[in-house]
């Protein structure tokens, strides 16, 4: 299953809830959630730790727009919109954590 997170992970429950609830699978960070994929953010440790349970992807056009494309945490996979489409197609279902 693909979990799509779009809200900033600092001060928003969506990411934490997803990590708490979701069965192992894939996570895609888009829109304001892309900050979670950057080195030095307060949740970097958590993102690294969660890579045991989830394959974590980040939508690069959103990260580029926010000026942080050069700081992706090791192991987080960068995707473009085409990659986003592939992720949705490859998973049986997807949930947006709105």
């Amino acid at each position: 299953m693909l979990h799509i997170i779009n809200r900033s992970v600092l001060g928003n429950a969506a990411f934490d809830s997803c990590l708490r609830v979701a069965a192992p699978g894939e996570i895609l960070l888009i829109e304001d959630a892309v900050y979670a994929a950057t080195k030095g953010n307060a949740l970097e440790g958590k993102v690294r730790e969660m890579q045991n349970r989830f394959k974590i992807h980040v939508l690069m056009p959103d990260l580029e727009a926010r000026g942080l494309a050069d700081r992706v945490i090791d192991g987080v996979s960068p995707v473009d919109y085409g990659g986003f489409v592939d992720l949705v197609a490859a998973n049986k279902n997807c949930q947006s954590w709105l």
Partner: peptide, 19 residues
Amino acid sequence: HQSSDSAYLFCKAAIAKGH
């Protein structure tokens, strides 16, 4: 909100891939 932009760009990419 960015959601309409994201949705549009997703649609365009999906169509470009033959979906």
